[in-house]
Computed example of a mutant assay.
Amino acid sequence: MALPRPRPRPRHRSRTRARLRNAALGLALGAVVAAVVPGSSASAAQSSASSETSGTAAASSTVGPFSEPAFTSECVWHHFGEGEKPPLWMWVYDPLCVEYDKRDITIDNGGALRFLLAEPSRFAIAGLSCRYYQRDHWSVQKSSGDVPYVTWDGQYWWDKGARRAGLRVTNFRINGTSAGIGDAVTALRPHFPELAGALEQFGEESGESGVSVTLPFSLPCSLAG
């Protein structure tokens, strides 16, 4: 006959709250990081994104708020309309900075099909780039004029030589309802102000979420300088 297990001793309430706060923060950051770099690990959350570095200075794995890449001032932006494919030779640009309209991902008018046909070329030039910055504008709906299933404006960049990447999503809505870290901050602030304060650097406005992460080492991009 198994002996009854002794009840665990209750822990101090403030200690429990601290652990819950840290766990919630880790889960929120992990979800965003997974969207940027699947499989990456976040070992520390930074309160500032000023640690944009290159080479061995970026060797430690870090997570921080979204910030613009150091090469933003070098960008020459190339704009592509709905379903428009970029030429494959564009991967030679360094940095490569592109903007895509993806607002007509519509099921019943062929917009969704045109979107799918254009994506392979877009992924191809992105994957070959050492310094890449993309902005895009999404809207997915069944018919023109319907409330979209999902909408957002995105910013995504990486600098493989510096081993840094960033993602920021704004105006994110599902069936017209705003969703993002900024919305979580607003909901949490009256009851959990410390947690809200920790999260707001990753999103302040409704529908906003942003993060920057460390990338794995890339030998070709490091040699390219």
Rank of each mutant, 00 (worst) to 15 (best):
A2N: 11
R5D: 13
P6H: 14
P6G: 05
R9S: 10
R11P: 13
R11K: 15
H12Q: 14
H12D: 14
H12A: 14
R13C: 12
S14I: 13
R17E: 15
A18E: 09
L20M: 15
L20G: 06
A23Y: 10
A24P: 03
A24Q: 08
A24W: 10
A28T: 12
V33R: 07
V33Y: 00
A34L: 00
A35D: 14
V36D: 15
S40R: 03
S40I: 01
S41M: 08
A42K: 02
S43K: 14
S48Q: 07
S50C: 02
S50T: 01
S51E: 12
T53P: 10
T53H: 13
T56A: 14
T56W: 13
A59T: 13
S61M: 15
V63T: 14
F66T: 01
S67T: 00
S67P: 00
E68M: 04
A70S: 13
A70G: 08
F71C: 05
S73K: 13
S73Y: 02
C75P: 01
C75M: 04
V76M: 06
H78A: 08
H78E: 11
H79K: 03
F80D: 06
G81Q: 08
E82P: 05
E84I: 01
E84L: 00
K85G: 00
P87K: 09
L88I: 06
W89G: 07
W89A: 10
M90T: 10
P95G: 08
L96G: 14
L96Q: 11
C97P: 02
V98A: 06
Y100E: 08
D101N: 07
K102W: 02
R103H: 13
R103A: 06
I105N: 14
T106H: 00
D108K: 12
D108P: 01
N109K: 03
G111M: 08
G111A: 02
L116Q: 02
L117S: 09
L117F: 14
L117E: 12
P120G: 03
S121F: 06
R122N: 01
R122M: 09
F123L: 05
R131M: 05
R131W: 10
Y132K: 04
Q134L: 05
R135Q: 04
H137C: 05
H137Y: 11
S144Y: 15
S144E: 15
S144G: 11
D146W: 11
V147W: 11
V147E: 12
V150L: 15
D153L: 05
A162D: 12
A162Q: 10
A165L: 03
A165S: 06
G166M: 00
R168H: 13
T170M: 13
F172C: 14
R173L: 11
G176P: 08
S178K: 00
G180C: 00
G182E: 05
A184E: 09
A187W: 03
L188V: 05
L195N: 00
G197R: 08
L199T: 03
L199Q: 08
E200H: 04
G203Q: 07
E205A: 13
G207L: 15
E208W: 01
E208R: 12
E208V: 09
G210S: 06
S212N: 04
S212R: 09
V213N: 07
P216H: 10
S218C: 12
L219R: 14
C221Y: 12
C221I: 09
A224F: 04
A224N: 04
A224H: 11
G225T: 10
